[in-house]
Simulated assay, not measured.
Amino acid sequence: MRRRALLGAALLAGCARSPEPRLFTLAPRPGEARAGGPATIELRRPGLAGYLDRPEIVRAAGPYQVGLAGAERWAEPFGDMLGRVLAENLSQRLPGSTVFTEAGGLSADADGVVELDVQRFDADAAGLVALLAQVAVRRSGSRRAAPRARSLRITVPAAAGDTPAMVAAMSTALGQLADAVAEMLRGV
């Protein structure tokens, strides 16, 4: 009985010393405001590579390896955060448009639709953030018309090797993605 009590106390002491998680969020980045986008734009929930769909921050750990950043986590589900920040970036870049996310509380008929599939979004050991995504934009209701689609590869060096610098570089990469998507939307 005494052994169990000691074991229980040791387990509780170990739990008490575990570090509190550090929570991070992507942030919108300013870009050039442009006219000519659709009046309303629906941003569909981004598709994510499975390794990104987790609360922990993911880093490339070497050839064919990824690692988790310990107690450093995203403050919200990664796909929701990515969509929210991209929508805010697009709203700033297309001031004549109203941008809403499929995952949000609004449901409205949109004039334009953005679909995004993120295949990679992480930093390597040297701190270079890589974003690899496929984007398609189209006028709503025109499923038969071919969407405008592109594959995008964006790289941004982090200012330092720590997680805040990596998240800042990821935010910059997402801003650059918004620049490309805004330009695509101007043509639909």
Rank of each mutant, 00 (worst) to 15 (best):
T25C: 11
G14K: 11
E56D: 12
S91T: 15
V113F: 08
G105W: 11
L106S: 11
L68S: 02
A10K: 05
L11S: 00
A39N: 07
R22K: 11
V99Q: 14
E102F: 00
L90Y: 01
G79H: 09
D53E: 12
I57P: 00
P19A: 14
R73T: 03
E88P: 01
G8S: 14
R59E: 08
L48S: 08
L86W: 03
Y51P: 04
L94Q: 13
A61K: 01
D80F: 01
L11Q: 00
W74T: 02
R22S: 13
G104Y: 03
A60S: 15
G31Y: 09
A27Q: 13
A39Q: 14
G70L: 10
R84Y: 02
L7T: 07
R34H: 04
R93W: 05
Y51A: 10
E32K: 12
L48A: 06
R3W: 06
L52G: 08
I57T: 01
E56Q: 15
L23G: 09
G37E: 06
E20L: 08
A71T: 13
L94G: 05
S107E: 15
L82W: 11
V58Q: 00
I57H: 00
E88D: 13
N89R: 04
D111Q: 04
G70V: 05
A103P: 11
D111T: 00
R54A: 06
